[in-house]
Each structure stands twice: as structure tokens, then as C-alpha cells.
């Protein structure tokens, strides 16, 4: 995709600035259905409490939010992870570091599934009171997935708040010192980059090369892999899109970049998301929008295993964020 998008994309995709098809219509036009493959990942949203209030947050997480997962729900979720035979548990928030009992949840999950991932914003985990969490993750061999939108402070701080870049760099260096991201340690450190605005992310492979070069050169930081994801037009990001006049152009951009091939790999096919109340959703974005799993409200205690293969997945226009370009897998 180049500057003018001049090589016939308009004609190929049939999208003009004023006539944007709904996501469901786009699937139909390409003869596609969104259905479950075998589900191997349980994503666990531990709540909306966060020390940051990032401008792109689809959940509107922040310091004033009180929704967090309690210990009883943590146990119910860990039980489900075990009996469901999930391969991966993916712990997210908010800032899960701030949830009381998070150590308990991680410890239980490590005993329940082969691979546990923990999403960190790189500032909450470095608070003095929570540094032990990094040590615990190391002991438990938990995979860390950290947000870093750019290798330049202007974009990182614009998205995540003043001073976040400096703190994030310090945290990454600290995690490297614990062995995270270092070859031969088995301690995986992955980075996630979302664009700092109403535009699509760069290609993942090229961006990863650049991150690797920049982070090593500027700060001596190493990591395993970079994932680039489009911002999802929900929550605080949607509020900003609306107030800045960017909503329609951004949605048009996402729709125009609709990649039918990406539909086969979207994460909701293989993942189920549980919220802080123990209720299930097809993904964290449907969770944010209040769309329950397969359109039916289920509690984690009510299911014996993962959703069945072939089950239909509800769609909405925010799904365009997962099928733009290379997609959101």
C-alpha cells in the first residue's frame, strides 16, 4: 500500500469514502464466515484498573476504574483453564500488576496450562511494591508481553502519557537484567506496538528489524518478537476519533485495508476471553463492547471446555481493525 493507494484499490475493494460496507457485509461479499477453529488460548482480563490512561485504550482503563477480578473468580478461571485443556493463558487488563492476588492467579495458571503470558504496560510492574512480580514471573517462566508503541519518546508519550518512554526503557533494561529477552534463558519478552494515532501500523517484520536496531543502539535492549496491531475504534480511542473528526476517515481506512486472507487467522477463532466477573466473550474487543461469547451470556463456571469448533462468532464494525493489512492474530 503506497501513498496514493492509486493502483486500483478503490475498485478492488469497492470502498469509497462515503459508502463503507459493514464488516458482516464485507465477509459476505468475499464468501467468508467467521467461525471457531479449535480454541487453544484463554485470555483473562483481570480488570480495568490501570496506572495509565492511554489514549488508544479500547477499554477506557485507568486509575479511577474499580472493576477488578476477585480471588474467587481467579480460582474459577484457573479451574476452567485446567479442565478446558487450554494451551495458553493470556493475562491482561488494565494493568494486571495492580490487581490484588495476581501472584495467586499466575501461580495457579502455571499449574493449569503449558504456557502463561502476562501483558505489562512497563510502568506498573516497575513500581517498588510490584518489582517482586517480575521476579515471580521469572521463576514461573511466564512469558512477558509489553506495550511499546514506538522507539521514539514523542509517539510513545503521546499515546501513553508523559514520561512513559523513559520509564519503559528503564523497565526493559531491568527485565533484560533478569534474563528476559536474552538468548538461552527461556524467558520470553515480546513487544507490542499500536500506532500513536488514526493510522495503520507498519508491517511487522520491517518494524521488528527497526525496533531491534533502535533499542539495541540507543539503550542496549533486547527482546524476542514485535507484534504490530491496529488500534481498535472503541473506548477512549473512539472518543478521540469522534472528537478529532477522525472516526469516519479511520473506519474508511480500516475497511479499505480489509484483507480477506487475514480472516482465516484472526485471534477470535482460537481464543476465548474471560472478563473480571468470569463472563466469557469471543475477544477482548467484544468484551469492551459488551458482546458475549457467541451472542449468549456464559459464566466461566458453566462451561466444561472451550467453545466448540465451527461455532459462529458475532461480528461488528470494530472487527475491521483485526483484518486490516496483515491482520490481528
Amino acid at each position: 500500500m503506497n501513498g496514493y493507494d492509486c493502483a486500483g484499490d478503490e475498485l478492488n475493494n469497492g470502498v469509497s469514502p462515503n459508502v463503507r460496507a459493514g464488516f458482516g457485509q464485507s465477509l459476505v461479499r468475499h464468501g467468508l464466515r467467521l467461525e471457531r477453529d479449535p480454541t487453544h488460548t484463554l485470555q483473562i482480563n483481570t480488570g480495568l484498573l490501570c496506572n495509565q490512561a492511554c489514549k488508544h485504550c479500547h477499554l477506557e482503563a485507568g486509575p479511577a476504574r474499580t472493576e477488578i477480578m476477585g480471588r474467587a473468580t481467579m480460582d474459577q478461571v484457573a479451574d476452567y483453564a485446567a479442565r478446558g485443556g487450554f494451551q495458553t493463558a493470556d493475562v491482561t487488563g488494565g494493568a494486571p500488576e495492580m490487581v490484588p492476588g495476581i501472584d495467586h492467579l499466575l501461580t495457579r495458571l502455571v499449574g493449569a496450562v503449558p504456557r502463561v503470558m502476562f501483558r505489562s504496560n512497563l510502568t506498573a510492574i516497575r513500581d517498588t511494591a510490584r518489582e517482586h512480580l517480575g521476579q515471580l514471573c521469572r521463576e514461573l517462566k511466564v512469558v512477558l508481553v509489553a506495550s511499546l508503541p514506538a522507539t521514539h519518546a514523542s509517539q510513545t508519550d503521546a499515546q501513553r502519557g508523559g514520561g512513559v518512554m523513559d520509564t519503559s526503557v528503564g523497565t526493559l533494561q531491568w527485565l533484560n537484567s533478569l534474563g528476559y529477552g536474552q538468548a538461552g534463558t527461556g524467558l520470553e519478552l515480546h513487544l507490542v506496538s499500536n500506532p500513536a494515532g488514526a493510522f495503520l501500523p507498519p508491517g511487522q517484520d520491517r518494524a521488528e528489524e527497526r525496533y531491534r536496531r533502535d533499542l539495541q543502539r540507543k539503550w542496549g535492549i533486547v527482546f524476542n518478537q514485535l507484534y504490530t496491531f491496529a488500534n481498535v475504534p472503541l473506548g477512549r480511542f473512539k472518543t478521540w476519533l469522534d472528537s478529532s473528526g477522525n472516526y469516519d476517515p479511520y473506519m474508511d481506512r480500516l475497511a479499505k485495508a480489509f484483507n480477506p486472507a487475514a480472516v482465516a487467522g484472526v485471534m477470535c477463532r482460537t481464543m476465548v476471553s474471560v472478563d473480571w466477573n468470569g463472563e466469557l466473550h469471543d475477544c477482548d474487543f467484544h468484551l469492551a463492547k459488551g458482546i458475549p461469547l457467541s451472542g449468549v451470556r456464559w459464566h466461566v463456571t458453566e462451561l466444561q471446555g472451550p467453545p466448540a469448533t465451527g461455532k459462529s462468532i458475532p461480528v461488528a464494525d470494530h472487527c475491521y481493525a483485526c483484518t486490516a493489512g496483515a491482520g490481528f492474530t
Binding site: H152, S154, P195, P202
Partner: peptide
């Protein structure tokens, strides 16, 4: 727009 989408920053 293209520069931003290719991962460049305003600097």
C-alpha cells in the same frame, strides 16, 4: 499518512 503507517515519527 504513508510515513506514519510505515512506522516513521514526526521527528
Amino acid at each position: 499518512k504513508e510515513c506514519l503507517e510505515q512506522g516513521s515519527n514526526t521527528a
